[in-house]
Structure formats: structure tokens, C-alpha cells
Computed example of a mutant assay.
Amino acid sequence: MSGPVSDPVGDARAGGARTGYSVNCSILFTELPLLQRPAAARAAGFDTVEFWWPFAEPVPPEADVRAFEAAIRDSGVQLGALNFDAGTMDAGERGLLSLPHRGADFRANVQVVAGIGERLGCLLFNALYGNRSPEYSPAEQDAEALRNLREAAAAVAPFGGTVLLEPLSGAPDYPLKTAADVFAVLADLHGAGTDNAALLADLYHLAVNGDDVAALLAGGAAARFGHVQIADAPGRGAPGTGQLPLTQWISDLRAGGYRGEVSLEYRAPLRNAFAWLEDPGAGVG
């Protein structure tokens, strides 16, 4: 006779919505097929989900787009944020928009992303900048990035969308590593007349890259964040598995004027992925 069947979604459920938090279904719920993850997130108590680009190409088949949208709608969750296509992540790519030979792919992807966003009411769109390439000078890449970011921002502006820029760790050729790096690009964008762009403050990436997160928050940067993601370090696990004072930082975010959701973008098995939310002060930094 077989033993009891495990119910990982049931094990993760806390009963009631996770107020103030969203969950990234590209890095969590990976035990499940992608289209089942929005419903699993809802069953675990989340009202809002987000995804990295969930398709294999910049312009996927229309049927695949519709299936993704149906999975979001049918589950009863809100799509809070969506990445533009960032290329082949497993091969080391970290964005297309600063690469002149990939600019056309990015611009084609913008139209697909904007369509999904408008139909689903998603307002936040993360654009990974792209690695530095020896084929181009940094100035050439930055000019390409400015062009493509402006086009992306213009595409989502009519329905209130914002383009996000994110510093990344673990990618030596990726040029945006600190909040200051992103703020410099945003200054160029704002100077060119594009106002609907903002920093995606992934506190894990910032901390791993040596940025002083506490000083950023104390200095009033939180009110300028377009979105926030968290994971503990080292390890990129759930809060409490590393050494970052995430509970304090979340409190400082709120006190500093950040009004958005905090996205859970860490790696953890579904069975205990959200246990820290039952006692968020336990063992968290």
C-alpha cells in the first residue's frame, strides 16, 4: 500500500492573502508546469504573481500567449510584473536591448509584452540591460539601450506602464551592478523625455554586489524604487536562510515611502518556501 500523497501547494498554504507580497513564478513553484503556477500561487495565498519572460522566443506563437494569459485569468491572480525577453539566460545572456544586433528582436518583443500587459492590467515591465559585448564600444551599446528603452517605455505608457531597470549580480559582463548605475541610465532617459522608467531594486543583487542597501534606504531612495524583489544571501534562498537583515530592510522600505509590493524572487522547495511569512522575524537577519 502506498503512503499519503504529498500536496506541496497545500503544505505551502498559510490561509489568506500574503498582503504586501507578490511571488515570482519563474523561480518559485518550479515543481509544477509553468501554466499551473499561477493557480498554485493563488492556493498558497498570493494575489499577485510575476514572471520572467515565459517563452522561448521574442515573438512566441499567438496560441502560447493566449494560453499564458488564460492561466493568469483563470487562477484569479493579478500579473504584477513581466520581464521583456532577456535572451538565452542559461547560456549567459542577460538582456537584448543594448546589443545592436539584437535590437530588432527586442523591439519586436516590446509589442508582444505591451499587448500582454494591456490585456492583463500589468503595469511593471523589467528590461535587463544586456552584457557588454566586445563587438561594440560601451558608447554604442548605451546608445542602443537608450533608443530601445525609450521605445519600450512609449509602448507601455498609454495604459500606465513603467519600464524597470535592474542591477544584477553573478554576471561579470553586465554593466549595471549598483543602484547608482541604474540611476545614471534613468537620468539619461528622463533627460530625453522618458519619465515612465524606474529602478527595480532587487535587494539580493544589490547586497551581493556590495551596494550599501541600508544607506540607500536611509538616504530616501526607497520612494524612487519602481519595484522591489528579495532573496537572502548567500545562496539566494528564502529570508532567514542567509545573513541579510531583510525584515529590517522591508520595514525601512515602507517607512521610506515605498508603496509597491515586495516580490519573493528566491529559490526554495515549495513545501517550505513561505514558512518565514508565518513568523517573519524568526531568523531573518
Rank of each mutant, 00 (worst) to 15 (best):
L164P: 10
S2R: 15
A12K: 09
V59N: 08
G95R: 03
G283Y: 03
F29E: 13
E151G: 00
D252N: 02
E135W: 14
G115F: 08
G160L: 01
T19A: 15
V213Y: 03
Q111G: 05
G219R: 07
I27S: 10
R224N: 06
L264T: 02
C25V: 08
L217N: 03
T241C: 07
E57F: 00
L28P: 02
L120S: 05
L199T: 03
A218V: 04
G219S: 11
A184T: 11
L200Q: 02
G237S: 13
Y204W: 01
V77R: 05
F46G: 15
R271M: 01
L277F: 06
R236K: 00
V110K: 06
D211M: 11
E135F: 08
E31C: 04
L186K: 14
D195C: 01
G210I: 06
R13F: 09
D195H: 13
Y129K: 06
A104I: 15
A86K: 01
A153N: 07
V185L: 10
V182A: 15
A40G: 01
L164T: 04
Y266H: 13
Q111T: 02
L253V: 00
G95I: 05
T247C: 05
L176W: 07
F29T: 12
A198F: 08
L277H: 01
R119L: 00
A63V: 02
G193I: 14
Q111E: 10
E135C: 12
E57W: 11
S169V: 08
E118H: 12
A153P: 10
P38N: 05
L96C: 10
P54F: 02
L97P: 00
V208M: 03
L32N: 09
A108C: 07
P60L: 08
F274C: 01
R94Q: 06
D188H: 10
N83G: 01
G161L: 15
A108N: 11
L97F: 09
L189D: 00
L165I: 10
P60Y: 14
S133K: 00
H227F: 14
A81I: 03
F159G: 09
V284N: 00
G15F: 00
R107Y: 09
A40I: 14
P280R: 03
P54G: 05
D232W: 10
L189I: 12
A153C: 15
T48F: 03
D212A: 12
G281N: 11
P60E: 01
L32V: 10
A104T: 11
D212E: 06
G242F: 14
